[in-house]
Design a protein around this nucleic acid. Structure first.
Length: 765
DNA sequence: TATCCTCGAGTTCC
DNA sequence: CTCGAGGATA
């Protein structure tokens, strides 16, 4: 604070614009150099105090002379010394989220399904741990030979952000461990205590009030301790993080060179012994009833704790059981988060707007009088669909006790999973007399096309397809989104801008790849426009060029074909290996796809007819008749069954894919796009195990594991588990009592082992 | 046919 | 993060 540079202390008010500019540029150079030195860990040429003073002066000048902003080069932007943000870290062991329980019954089911999976009966002992779920952000700390070498946020679970410099400033974290495994990744929650949070906000406020600048902006206070902790940990300038009182509870681990203990409880004790803070309210419990008792106890203490918690986490205590239970796609089977009831708030519903998504889905959104829910001001909330507003679903079942939602109503709002605002209830006693039931539109509010609701479907969809500007824009946004083409500098905002652009429009995916050549022929060049410069334009061209080579799966996902998501696209890419091979196969299967649809329709017609006449529906015959009438070539049938034989690809997805490729407009768009791209074929995931890529069938009684467990293990090792023996089967695992399957396998000459043989086979993996 | 699980598509706020 | 629906399975 006690700055030495006199020039820095000059009164802003007396400056001419020219003086200001000169001083501004000087400061910029100074700060830039200081940032560079600081981050390359050179000896800094100025003290922290001088740096702060210079920075404050720099920002003051910017406030006073906004026109200076155009002189601010991005690299020197103060407060963000590293312009590009954090580097990415791939977690050695994924950081997963937890499944949720809301009711006592869910906790009982958790116990039941674990016992079922492990094959334990109801009386068998099964111990758990229960600990408060801290409302902060998870952090993974990697120690090698006792040294803290890396800290990473959770991110999407696969990769997080490298926040090592910031983590090193957290006082509560041991920087060096003694007696720890050579490799130890400690995971836990970074949080801020209530007193520290309030003191921080008070400090920000005081600093603000002390600021003599008359043009100062409103102080930016943190809404809650969690935001404060997140904001502090994700500071690009770790000196700021150092000033923030962050704390850390350890509760889990990632990669380990040796086990920490045999139980969860023991592992936590071990982490505590190594110097990590662990939560004192952790307990060992021996039954669901015990877990619930501990839950209530923590719930009672909740208000008196000096940190925020949002539930209680239950984990299977025995680590070898944890390992057997393993993981579903995104959550472990051996742990669950029992959430406290969400915070509720009442407010007025001011309007209901309809948004149109990329598939044409009309989604109602509630515009609310802003209200604070769980520390965040909410002004929008999802209303899901037509039925949710009406209060009855298509089967006539009540939603919210059958109360409909009307504009003008008092509505109760909560944040589902503490994130997505939802309207939960309506106060009928406060309903205005003139409130009328909401009429859900039957035409698209964006393009005027019909909006139809398929039988049994919850959503109403605009049929306009690519004609509908809303769908076209949303489709393009999907195309450039992170899991699709992921083009730097071409996000949702830019897509909206370019879609509307007169001179340089992007209306189809292919337009993205002709953008630069069209720009060069254009009179109103991009780099001449407001908000664009030489640099930003050439950055965009480079980012687009980078994606002219694209993985097959990403491309297929990017097209936004209904029902073809990230996983489906990847599986299809893996199955066909090549774009043209797939396109040909899909074309070939067209006749069979249409026949399948005809059969569905015939089946439905038969049901209706049967219901009318009060007779039993002869569904199968109706289907067979329809299929026979369609007279599908064998090659088409073969292509169709090959397509729908892919794991996870069924008739719905097959039809959707077929329709997209058969639609001449869409097909033309695909072909136009393809001309600009080099498509990289997918690499089969190579698992290093003796059963990778093999198709395995289990039969008979398994004694050392349950069916579900055997299947999950086999799949984790890259095997495909099938229910029936065919000539594609590579291995049959037969327990006692194996019958027809074992015989069939013997007939086909398929290798057969017993359970022990199987365990031996996979033992090394 | 019912039941489980996963995926797709929708959503808000920072 | 949640819901609904698709797909696999018992």
């Amino acid at each position: 604070m006690t700055g030495s540079g006199d020039s820095v202390e000059k009164q802003v008010e007396n400056l001419t614009a020219e003086d200001a500019r000169e001083e501004f540029l000087e400061l910029q150079t100074l700060l830039w150099a200081a940032n560079r030195e600081y981050h390359s860990s050179d000896a800094p040429s100025i003290s922290d105090a001088d740096y702060d003073t210079a920075k404050r002066r720099y920002l003051d000048l910017l406030d006073q002379f906004p026109e200076l902003r155009k002189n601010a080069t991005q690299a020197a932007t103060v407060g963000a010394p590293i312009a590009d943000g954090f580097t990415k870290v791939t977690h050695a062991v994924r950081m997963l989220s937890l499944g949720n329980a809301f009711e006592d019954e869910d906790v009982q089911n958790f116990d039941t399904s674990i016992r079922k999976y492990l094959g334990l009966d109801r009386e068998a002992a099964l111990s758990y741990t229960a600990e408060p779920k801290i409302d902060g952000l998870s952090l993974s700390l990697r120690y090698e030979n006792g040294e803290l070498v890396q800290a990473a946020t959770r991110g999407d679970g696969e990769t997080g952000e490298n926040v090592t410099a910031n983590a090193r400033t957290i006082q509560a974290l041991p920087h060096r461990l003694t007696g720890a495994p050579a490799i130890l990744e400690v995971r836990g929650e970074v949080y801020m205590s209530h007193p520290d949070f309030e003191a921080l906000n008070a400090r920000i406020l005081a600093k603000h009030q002390a600021d003599p600048n008359p043009n100062k902006k409103e102080p930016k206070l943190f809404a809650n301790p969690r935001n404060a902790a997140a904001g502090s940990l994700r500071q690009l300038d770790s000196r700021i993080t150092a000033e923030r009182p962050l704390r850390f509870f350890a509760y889990a681990w990632g990669e380990l060179s040796e086990p920490l203990a045999e139980t969860q409880w023991g592992a936590i004790e071990r982490l505590a012994a190594l110097g990590f803070e662990t939560n004192p309210l952790t307990a060992q419990c021996s039954s669901p009833a015990d877990l619930l008792a501990h839950y209530r106890q923590i719930e009672e203490q909740r208000a008196s704790l000096d940190y925020d918690i949002d539930g209680v986490v239950y984990k299977v205590d025995d680590l070898s059981l944890q390992e057997r239970l393993g993981f579903r796609s995104t959550t472990p089977r051996w742990a669950i988060a029992h959430k406290f009831p969400a915070e509720l708030a009442w407010t007025r519903l001011e309007a209901i707007d309809i948004q149109v998504g990329r598939t044409g889905a009309l989604s109602p959104v509630a515009r609310l009088q802003p209200v604070t829910v769980g520390g965040v001001v909410v002004s929008n909330a999802t209303l899901h669909n037509e039925d949710y507003i009406k209060g009855f679903d298509s089967k006539g079942e009540e939603i919210r006790g059958g109360k409909d939602i009307r504009v003008g109503d008092w509505v109760q709002v909560y944040r589902a999973g503490d994130v997505i605002p939802k309207v939960a209830d309506v106060d009928l006693t406060k309903r205005p007399d003139d409130a009328v039931p909401f009429e859900f539109p039957t035409t698209c509010p964006e393009c005027g096309s019909q909006a139809v609701r398929e039988e049994g479907d919850a959503v109403r969809r605009c049929v306009g397809g690519i004609i509908c500007p809303a769908q076209a824009v949303e489709k393009l946004k999907h195309f450039v989104s992170r899991k699709a083409f992921d083009i730097d500098g071409l996000g949702a905002k830019q897509i909206e801008m370019f879609y509307e652009d007169e001179h340089l429009p992007i209306r189809t995916p292919a337009d993205i790849f002709t953008l630069q050549s069209r720009d060069s022929e254009n009179l109103s060049k991009l780099e001449k426009r407001k908000g664009w410069g030489d640099q930003s334009a050439s950055n965009l061209w480079a980012a687009i060029d980078e994606k002219r080579t694209i993985a097959f799966g990403r491309l297929l996902f990017a097209l936004g074909i209904r029902h073809v998501g990230e996983v489906g696209a990847r599986d299809l890419a893996l199955h066909y290996g090549d774009w043209d091979v797939m396109a040909q196969a899909v074309d070939m299967a067209r006749a069979a796809a249409l026949a399948h649809r005809a059969a569905d329709e015939a089946e439905e017609a038969e049901r209706v007819a049967a219901a009318e006449h009060g007779r039993r529906a002869r569904v199968k015959e109706a289907r067979d008749r329809a299929l026979a009438e369609s007279n599908v070539p064998d090659a088409a049938t073969a292509a169709w069954s090959d397509l729908t034989g892919v794991d996870g690809i069924g008739a719905t997805l097959g039809l959707s894919l077929s329709d997209a490729f058969a639609n001449s407009d869409e097909r033309a768009a695909f072909d136009a796009l393809r001309a600009h791209l080099t498509i990289v074929p997918p690499e089969a995931p190579q698992k290093d195990s003796p059963v990778a890529g093999k198709t395995v069938v289990f039969t008979g009684t398994l004694e050392k594991m349950t069916r579900a467990e055997a299947k999950a293990r086999a799949e984790a090792l890259g095997a495909k588990v099938s229910g029936s023996v065919s000539k594609k089967t590579d291995l049959l695992v037969a327990g006692p009592g194996a019958g027809s399957k074992a015989k069939k396998a013997a007939d086909l000459g398929i290798e057969t082992v017993d359970e022990d043989g199987w365990l031996e086979l996979i033992a090394g993996a």
